[in-house]
Design a protein around this nucleic acid. Structure first.
Length: 688
DNA sequence: CTAGGGTTAG
């Protein structure tokens, strides 16, 4: 039974049948090269360059000469086979070709041709076909009308789709499913769920006649995964168990996804574990869900289990999800191995995978490698460009980011909402106030994109850190959307840098409301008070934190070494090498102080005496990780560290000294951006 | 000779 879906979805053999005439034809070799890509389920965004579009129409014209031109059945199978093989344009061309031969289409001629229009989002030709349907009188046909509903929905014409749907006298499962999926794919998941309820009402009206099948369930579950309310998913889950759809592969796959998207990864995992038959989608979904939720270790663990399962092969989707896990955890070595796998599987030109590779290299500290992969990509789309811009931004290379942004526009790719977030973030990391304002203003006027909360967040950060605190505050006051914790957090952070108590208090008060469990804001405000010498207020804050049961989350740093991720906590004593690490840090400390390093203790609570403070500082996780990195890697290689919080001011200074003393390059990714330390300097120019 | 579904990137 496990192959049920394969059988159901098996492609027909239009091309490999006797219709391919001569061995000299170039087509078989194209088919040969196409084979590795045939598992790629997403042919649209990145058309395989080998399949030259210009050649295709000739293909179908050619085939049309080979078939019995006088038989409508031959035309129908040509249209259907082309459509099923994903050659939608040819399918449509075959239909027009048939009309040119004055063959009258019958009811079976339409559905596949209409579907092809939907697949290409070609509403224009779709409407022409609809007209022909009306002229030939096939509109009452359930196959024809259902495919029209699907086509209009896929072209984004939801209203027309619904009008047609409502006009179908005796709707079947397929009509209902087409309409539900139409809603889901147009961002109206809630309507899809409501339609499902209507469907159930219709069922009972018809005296219990079954109108639901596994595809309908999959459709409603995919709506659930976007509605984000667990009780809806639970309800559908109960229903599908009652109707006996639990064992269906596709149903299980979607159910997992729905639960996870509603926030319950544990139940999603239970569904996964309970599935007797798992296909590549099952595995991919579980890996992706873990990766998307930041559970990189679980995602990578799943991946290795998948590799052990001899019944499935990983594909583009798998690698894309695994690369995301690498990016999050900063696992550069593993990420490189996956990249090699990508190349071996000839997936380098797949936009999804290519963009994942770029993102992985950026987030693992290697913008240069990201750029190389980026340059090799052929079918760049908006996400690929944006990934590269964001990548340069997080490394503080705003000029490069803006250059890529420029190139993108020259290439005729329109920037979107997220592109501008990346551009403004790049400006804020580098303190480019003029450019920031320029693009912030341009996005609304020239690009018709209303600035959202993320854009304001970047601008407040940019202005605030540049010292324009009042300007930043005024910008918040002008916002039409409600400022979130990122916006106020940026302002508070800027107040800490520029020692502004007044605006700092305003921001902190907002933050205590918006994000009451985060004690980072208490600490920041407390630092502002401490700088101003207002110790009473510092104490008040401490009492408040205690009363609210807030504990500072422990800082930790990660280092990848020999394929393993080593975790260091603040003041860690658990690591097998801890004695050596502390000894090494001791000798480093002496050399650093000889070189002029003065421990900065301002970020430590004020009532600890000086000596104690220095000890506390010395064991910040990033310092432990740096020491471990130096001790275990060879001279000349880059040491790479990932920290969960922002790097502290003292550690930043210390690592600058260390990079010079041991002549090593040290890359630190903190929660905000990258710092590249070299020769006693940091790439952020101490601006962060 | 005919229609609907599940996993991936910024």
């Amino acid at each position: 039974m496990r192959d049920y879906h394969c059988l159901k979805k098996q492609k027909t053999t239009f091309f490999s049948s006797s219709l391919i005439p001569t061995p000299l034809s170039p087509i078989p070799s194209i088919l040969f090269f196409l084979k590795p890509f045939s598992s790629n389920p997403n042919p649209n965004p990145n058309p395989n360059p080998i399949a030259i579009p210009k050649a295709k129409p000739n293909l179908s014209v050619f085939f049309s000469k080979c078939i019995d031109k006088s038989s409508v059945y031959s035309w129908n199978s040509a249209i259907a086979d082309l459509s099923r093989n994903g050659d939608f344009l040819e399918s449509i061309l075959a239909f027009s070709s048939m009309r040119k031969h004055s063959i009258k289409p019958n009811r079976s001629s339409f559905p596949c041709a209409i579907k092809a229009c939907g697949a290409l989002s070609d509403a224009c030709f779709g409407k022409q076909l609809h007209l022909q349907v009306l002229v030939t009188g096939f509109e009452p046909d359930i196959f024809v009308s259902s495919s029209l509903v699907d086509m209009y929905a896929k072209c984004g014409e939801l209203g027309d789709a619904r009008k047609l749907f409502d006009g179908i006298p005796c709707r079947n499962v397929v009509s209902w499913t087409s309409m539900m999926t139409g809603y889901v794919q147009n961002g109206a998941a809630r309507e899809a769920v409501l339609l499902f309820k209507e469907l159930l009402a219709e069922e009972s009206r018809r005296g219990g006649e079954c109108l639901v099948d596994d595809v309908a369930i999959v459709s409603v579950l995919s709506a659930c995964s976007r509605v984000l309310e667990k009780w809806v998913t639970r309800g559908v889950h109960g229903f599908l168990v009652k109707r006996g759809f639990e064992g269906e592969l596709g149903v299980g796959n979607t159910l997992m996804d729905a639960y996870a998207k509603c926030g319950d990864l544990v139940v999603a995992r239970k569904v996964f574990d309970g599935m007797d038959y798992k296909d590549v989608v099952t595995w991919n979904s579980m890996i992706a869900l873990y990766a998307q939720n930041g559970l990189s270790a679980e995602a990578l663990g799943m991946f290795s289990l998948m590799l052990k399962d001899r019944d499935v092969m990983c594909n583009a989707v798998t690698l894309s999800a695994v690369l995301l896990a690498c990016a999050h955890s900063g696992a550069l070595q593993l990420g490189k191995c996956i990249h090699v796998q990508v190349i071996k599987m000839l997936l380098e030109e797949n936009v999804f995978v290519g963009t994942s590779v770029i993102d992985m290299y950026c987030k693992c500290g290697r913008v240069g490698m990201a750029r190389k992969a980026f340059n090799r990509m052929k079918g760049k789309n908006i996400k690929s460009w944006t990934a590269m811009i964001a990548g340069y931004g997080m490394h503080g290379q705003a000029r490069e980011a803006l250059e890529v942004f420029d190139e993108m526009q020259s290439a005729g790719v329109k920037p979107n909402y997220i592109t501008f977030v990346s551009v403004l973030a790049a400006c804020s990391h580098a303190g480019l106030v003029t450019e920031g304002w320029q693009w912030f203003n341009a996005m609304a006027i020239e690009f018709n994109i209303v600035p959202g909360v993320e854009h304001y967040g970047c601008m407040v950060d940019l202005l605030g850190r540049a010292g324009h605190l009042n300007e930043a505050y005024d910008l918040i006051k002008q916002m039409k959307v409600k400022p979130d914790f990122v916006v106020w957090g940026a302002l508070l952070g800027a107040c800490r840098i520029h020692k502004n108590v007044e605006i700092g208090e305003i921001s902190a008060r907002k933050l205590f409301e918006l994000d009451p469990k985060n004690c980072g804001y208490y600490v920041l405000l407390s630092n502002i008070y401490a700088d101003a010498g207002r110790w009473n207020d510092v104490d008040k804050l401490r009492v408040m934190m205690k009363k609210r049961g807030l504990v500072k989350p422990p800082g930790y740093s990660l280092v990848e070494f020999k394929g393993q991720i080593h975790v260091f906590l603040v003041g860690d004593k658990e690591h097998p090498q801890q004695k050596k690490i502390y000894e090494y840090l001791e000798t480093l400390s002496v050399k650093m102080q000889e070189a002029g390093y003065v421990p900065d203790t301002t970020s430590v609570l004020h009532d600890v005496d000086q000596e104690e403070k220095e000890t506390v500082l010395r064991i910040h996780s990033e310092k432990l990780a740096v020491a471990f990195g130096i001790m275990n890697t060879v001279q000349g290689t880059t040491i790479q560290i990932i920290k969960n919080l922002r790097v502290c001011g003292d550690c930043h200074t210390a690592i600058k000294f260390i990079s010079k003393i041991v002549s090593r390059q040290i890359v630190v990714r903190d929660s905000n951006r990258f710092h590249h330390f070299k020769d006693g300097l940091c790439s952020c120019g101490d601006y962060w």
